[in-house]
């Protein structure tokens, strides 16, 4: 049995213009020791998916479906038990480090606290372990940095402090929401290597949300692509990179700025994401898709098998240009 099984997860949020269907039937599973990548349009529901796993959805959210973690349905657990799982067996690196860090406590203290709580370390052992972790994410001199308050750190340093904090208790599942956005390539790689090493050592599972396709390619074996609250493509990372089956996936890959690219305008996907409170029927990408036909808006496209463990939600997959299209490019 998988460590984590998410089945038909649905989240509806109250907004000024009525309920917004933010997640609409998200399903995936994650084995111990596995790294799963999650990419997708800004506003497609990546962070909400992560927050749902930790029971931290915004107030007023209505949740449906199942989230089974180590055999228990998290959506049915009382808050007290969820709280015990959080920070101990499930840890999260939040997209916004500043709101997740306590501005009034030193970094060292914030890392040491859960160690004392969940792993029953003595005060000094916890402090030493905190310094060791800070060193491993490249915050040096670690002893000095442990005494810093969050506002005394740069953006990237804060992000690394968050990574150290999340890894402190050796969780079974790490949900990392854009953990390296503020980091340059070398430091990002160093932090991801640390997560990968822990996954290998302790069997930690990793759900990695990132808009950096290079990082997804290097870190994960399987990935999901989200759009409009749905998983529109899922499969082995190499297969998704090679096939770029879904039209949105293709647009996403074409848009990335490249070091060797010609300066000028970047290709983008025309239009903008649909309003979740007022979703048109059918395929959520239809309003921006060059291949859209009437049938696309008639009914929600089902997930179609296109290879081993590889699926996409599109009714015109046969219309895709062949793989190896020059604008796309593969894993680095």
């Amino acid at each position: 049995m998988a460590l984590l099984e998410v089945e038909d997860l649905r989240v509806t949020l109250p907004t000024a213009r009525g309920p917004a269907a933010a997640l609409r039937g998200v399903s995936f599973s994650l084995e111990a020791g596995e790294a799963l990548g999650l990419v997708g349009e800004s506003g497609s529901g990546k962070s909400l998916t992560a927050l749902a796993l930790l029971g931290l959805l915004p107030e007023g959210a209505a949740v449906g479906g199942h989230i089974r973690f180590a055999g228990r349905d998290l959506l049915a657990l009382p808050e007290r038990e969820l709280c015990r799982l959080r920070g101990n067996r499930i840890a999260m690196i939040f997209q916004e480090p500043m709101t997740a860090l306590n501005p009034l406590q030193t970094i060292g203290r914030q890392i040491a606290e859960p160690l004392r709580l969940h792993r029953a370390l003595s005060r000094s052992a916890a402090a030493d372990e905190a310094i060791r972790l800070l060193g491993r994410v490249g915050l040096k001199p670690a002893a000095g940095r442990a005494r810093a308050y969050p506002h005394q750190l740069s953006g990237g340093q804060r992000q690394r402090a968050m990574i150290a904090m999340a890894l402190a208790c050796a969780p079974d599942l790490l949900v990392a929401d854009e953990p390296t956005t503020a980091l340059d390539v070398t430091v990002a790689r160093q932090s991801l290597d640390l997560m990968a090493a822990l996954a290998a050592e302790s069997g930690m599972a990793l759900l990695l949300i990132s808009h950096d396709l290079g990082i997804i390619a290097e870190t994960t074996r399987r990935m999901l692509v989200m759009y409009g609250g749905q998983v529109v493509e899922s499969g082995p990372t190499a297969a998704v990179f090679a096939a770029l089956a879904h039209p949105y996936t293709r647009g996403l890959f074409a848009a990335r700025p490249r070091l060797d690219g010609m300066p000028g305008r970047l290709p983008t996907i025309p239009g903008s994401v649909p309003d979740l409170a007022d979703l048109p029927p059918g395929c959520p990408f239809a309003g921006r898709c060059a291949l859209a036909i009437a049938a696309c808006t008639a009914a929600e496209p089902p997930a179609v098998d296109i290879g081993p463990g590889h699926q996409a939600r599109c009714i015109r997959l046969d219309q895709q240009p062949p793989a190896g299209d020059p604008v796309a490019g593969g894993p680095a």
């Binding site: 800004s42 956005t181 503020a182 808009h211 647009g251 990335r256 700025p257």
Partner: peptide, 21 residues
């Protein structure tokens, strides 16, 4: 602009960069 697009997914990143231009 301090890292104005690093929190954005690539397609939105491209839109914002084009927009800034």
């Amino acid at each position: 602009a301090d890292e104005p697009v690093s929190a954005l997914d690539v397609s939105v990143q491209a839109q914002v960069l084009n927009l800034m231009q």
